[in-house]
Amino acid sequence: MSSSEFSNSTKVLIETLSAIEHQRWSHWQSYLHSKCEKNDDGSLTIPKDLVEKWNKQIETNYSDLTEKEKKSDREQVMKYLHYILEFKK
Rank of each mutant, 00 (worst) to 15 (best):
65 L>T: 00
77 V>E: 06
52 E>T: 10
76 Q>F: 01
38 K>C: 05
82 H>W: 08
84 I>K: 04
37 E>P: 01
14 I>C: 04
24 R>N: 14
41 D>R: 00
64 D>Q: 08
14 I>F: 02
6 F>K: 10
87 F>N: 11
59 E>K: 13
7 S>F: 00
56 K>I: 05
23 Q>C: 03
53 K>H: 14
23 Q>Y: 09
62 Y>F: 08
56 K>R: 12
9 S>A: 10
17 L>W: 01
41 D>W: 00
27 H>R: 15
34 S>K: 04
29 Q>Y: 14
1 M>N: 10
87 F>P: 06
33 H>C: 08
67 E>A: 09
16 T>L: 07
19 A>P: 07
27 H>Y: 11
81 L>I: 05
41 D>N: 03
57 Q>W: 11
44 L>T: 08
3 S>G: 03
77 V>H: 00
8 N>V: 15
52 E>W: 02
23 Q>A: 09
11 K>A: 07
24 R>I: 12
38 K>N: 10
66 T>L: 00
12 V>S: 15
19 A>G: 13
6 F>A: 06
40 D>N: 11
8 N>A: 15
82 H>L: 05
59 E>D: 12
17 L>R: 01
9 S>I: 13
55 N>G: 02
35 K>C: 14
55 N>S: 08
76 Q>V: 04
66 T>H: 04
30 S>E: 14
83 Y>D: 07
54 W>E: 04
33 H>D: 13
58 I>R: 14
88 K>H: 06
87 F>A: 09
71 K>M: 10
73 D>Q: 01
39 N>W: 01
1 M>H: 10
26 S>K: 15
70 K>T: 04
77 V>L: 04
66 T>V: 01
57 Q>E: 15
89 K>A: 07
6 F>W: 09
36 C>D: 04
44 L>C: 06
51 V>L: 09
